[in-house]
Amino acid sequence: MPPTLTDPALAYLLAAAGLDLTDAEKADLVGIHDSLAAMKARVRQKRGHMAEPAHTFGFNEEDLG
């Protein structure tokens, strides 16, 4: 089940961050929350040094995994 951001959870997070947002801004955050969660899951994966190819030289096929 994908993550969802409930109104009480959003209110808690905003209060903890000291943010006072408009209703439109809150709706934008709720609308993108699930997409951000999916992006974080993709980014937080183990990666080889090929994730930064500009900093590598002389790599081979095993380096791509």
Rank of each mutant, 00 (worst) to 15 (best):
H33R: 00
D34K: 11
K26C: 10
I32Q: 05
D7Y: 10
D34H: 04
A54Q: 10
P53N: 12
H33D: 01
T6N: 02
A15T: 10
L10W: 01
L36K: 12
F59D: 11
A24C: 03
M50I: 12
K40H: 12
M1Y: 07
P53T: 12
A16W: 03
L5T: 02
A17C: 12
A9T: 03
A37N: 11
S35G: 08
D28S: 10
L29F: 15
L64C: 10
T56W: 05
D34Q: 05
V30R: 01
G18Y: 08
P8G: 00
P3D: 14
D63E: 09
T4F: 01
G31W: 05
A16V: 07
H55D: 05
D7K: 07
A38C: 08
N60A: 13
F59C: 14
P2K: 14
I32C: 08
T56R: 14
P2R: 12
F57A: 15
G18S: 06
T22S: 15
A9M: 03
A38V: 09
L10R: 00
A38Q: 13
L14A: 06
A16S: 12
A24S: 06
E52D: 08
D7E: 03
L29G: 05
E52P: 02
P2A: 15
K46R: 07
T22L: 04
L19Q: 06
M39R: 12
A41L: 07
G58L: 08
M1I: 11
F59Y: 15
E61K: 13
E52F: 14
V43Y: 11
A41C: 07
F59G: 14
G31L: 02
L29R: 03
T4Q: 13
S35K: 09
E52S: 10
S35L: 06
A54S: 03
D28Q: 02
M39Y: 01
A16P: 02
L19M: 11
A9S: 04
L10N: 01
D34W: 04
Y12M: 06
D28H: 11
K46D: 11
V30W: 00
L29V: 01
D63N: 13
Q45E: 09
T6Q: 04
F59N: 14
M1Q: 06
G58T: 06
A27H: 04
A16Q: 09
R42P: 00
N60Y: 14
N60I: 07
L5H: 02
L10G: 01
P3G: 11
